[in-house]
Design a protein around this nucleic acid. Structure first.
Lengths: 224, 224
DNA sequence: ATATTATCCGAACATTTGTTCCATGTCAAG
DNA sequence: CTTGACATGGAACAAATGTTCGGATAATAT
C-alpha cells in the first residue's frame, strides 16, 4: 500500500458533506452521487465519503435508499441551507378577543398558517391570531378574521397596532398617533371618531401587518 | 439473432414514457433511470427506452444531462401530471371602484396573484380585484384591499356578493337576502342599516370568497 | 407490390456508481 | 507512552446505468 503524505483530518468534514448535499440539491433539484461529493469537496477516496454518509445516517440526518444511484436523501436541512420555500409558516397562537390581552409571542403555537413569501417582507417573529367578536370592527376587522402581527413595543405614527388598554383591560386595533402626552387611537373606519388616552394607559403589543378573511363559511385553514 | 414473437408496436409509448417520468418525479422527487422506465412500463429493452428518449429530446419535451445517472429532465409537464403546486395563480383584473362595474371575468389579466391552495376550495374561474376607495367600507373592505371573487349569477341568501346596482350605476359588496320581490342588501358592519331594492334593480356579479389586506404600506404583490 | 420510415429487440460494451476491504494515520484520554 | 475511537487512503469488486450496434419487424407511403 502506497502512502503519500496524509492530509490532516478535517474535523468538520461531515458537516461539509451535509452542506454540500444541500447546496447540490438547491441547485440541481436532485441529489449528488458519492463521487460527485468526493470531487466537489476534494476528498481522496469514495470510501471516505461513504464512511461519513454512514455516520450521517446513524445520526438520522440523511437516509439512503437501497443501492440506487443518487440514493441520498436529506432528512433535516442544515441551517441556512433549506431550499427557498414559497410558503412561510407562521405560528398561530389562538383567538384574540376584546377583553383579553394577546397571547405571549413565545407561547406554544396551536397550529401554523402558511403565508406566501412575497406577501411578507420578513417572516421572522410574526404570529397569527384569530379575531373573535366584532370589537375591532372599526379597524375593518371582523369576527373570524385572521391577523398577522409583528411584535413591537412601539410603532410609527399612523401604523395599525394591537393596543392593550391598561385601564379598560381591552385589546383593540387602531392607528396610533402620539400627540404630546396623550395618544390618539384612530379607527380605520373613516366616520368613526378617535379615542384619546394618556400615553401611559396603553401598551403597544405589535403591528398588524396583514388581515386575511375567508367569506365562504370555512375559516382560513390552520394546520396543526 | 434470435427472434421470439414480437409484441405489437405501442403507438403512444412515447407519451407513456413521458407520463411515467412525470409520475415518478411526483412520487420520488427525483428522475428515473432508463432501466427503471423500462421495468415500469414492461419494455423489452433499454435501447427502446433510449430510442424514445432521444425522440423526446428532439421534440424538446425533455433534456438529458451528459452521461449522468438519472440525467433526464422534464421541460414541459404532460397534461394533468404537473406536480401539485402549493400556490394557485389567480388572474388580477384591475381596480374596482364604486362607480364602475367590475371587469369582465374573461378580460385580459393585468397580472396574477398566487394564493395558497388550501385557502381555496377550487381555484377555477376565480379572479382578483383591488378595491379603490372607501365605498365598500361597510362590508369591512377598505381602500387597497384585494378581493378574490368567484363569478356567479346568483348567490345563496346571506352570502357576500359583488352587486351592481343598475339604477345607481354602482358596484358594492353586501350580503344578499331575497325578501319577496325585493332584496335586502345587508352591510357586514353590524350597526349599518340595510338597503332595500327591487329584485330587478340589482345584478349579482359574483361571490366574494376572500379578502386580503396588507397594512405595512406595500399592497399585496401582484406578479405580471 | 415495393420502398421507406418508424419502431422494436437482444446483446454487448463502456462508464458510472455504490460498496467493501484492509492498512494506516490522527487525536484525545488515561 | 499506550490505548482505543475516529478518520483517511488506495484499490478493487459488484452492481447500476447510459449507450451503441446490427438486425428484425411493423406501419405507412408510393
Amino acid at each position: 500500500m502506497k502512502r503519500g503524505r496524509r492530509s490532516r483530518i478535517r474535523r468538520d468534514l461531515r458537516q461539509e458533506i451535509l452542506a454540500f448535499i444541500a447546496r447540490w440539491y438547491r441547485q440541481e433539484r436532485t441529489y449528488p452521487t458519492v463521487r460527485e461529493i468526493q470531487k466537489g469537496l476534494k476528498i481522496s477516496s469514495p470510501s471516505v465519503v461513504d464512511y461519513h454518509l454512514r455516520r450521517l445516517e446513524q445520526e438520522d440526518l440523511i437516509t439512503r435508499v437501497g443501492r440506487r444511484s443518487r440514493g441520498i436523501r436529506l432528512r433535516r436541512w442544515p441551517d441556512g441551507l433549506a431550499p427557498e420555500e414559497d410558503l412561510i409558516p407562521i405560528p398561530f397562537l389562538g383567538p384574540i378577543a376584546a377583553g383579553e390581552p394577546i397571547p405571549h409571542p413565545d407561547a406554544e403555537p396551536l397550529g401554523w398558517i402558511r403565508i406566501p413569501r412575497p406577501w411578507l417582507a420578513d417572516g421572522n417573529g410574526l404570529f397569527a391570531l384569530r379575531v373573535q367578536g366584532d370589537s375591532m370592527i372599526d379597524a375593518l376587522v371582523g369576527d373570524g378574521d385572521l391577523i398577522i402581527v409583528k411584535p413591537a413595543p412601539e410603532v410609527e405614527d399612523g401604523e395599525m397596532a394591537v393596543v392593550w388598554l391598561t385601564d379598560r383591560h381591552e385589546t383593540t386595533l387602531k392607528r396610533v398617533y402620539r400627540e404630546g402626552d396623550r395618544v390618539r387611537l384612530q379607527p380605520a373606519h373613516p366616520t368613526m371618531s378617535p379615542l384619546y388616552v394618556p400615553a401611559e394607559a396603553i401598551r403597544i403589543q405589535g403591528k398588524v401587518i396583514q388581515v386575511l378573511r375567508n367569506l365562504n363559511g370555512l375559516p382560513l385553514p390552520v394546520e396543526p
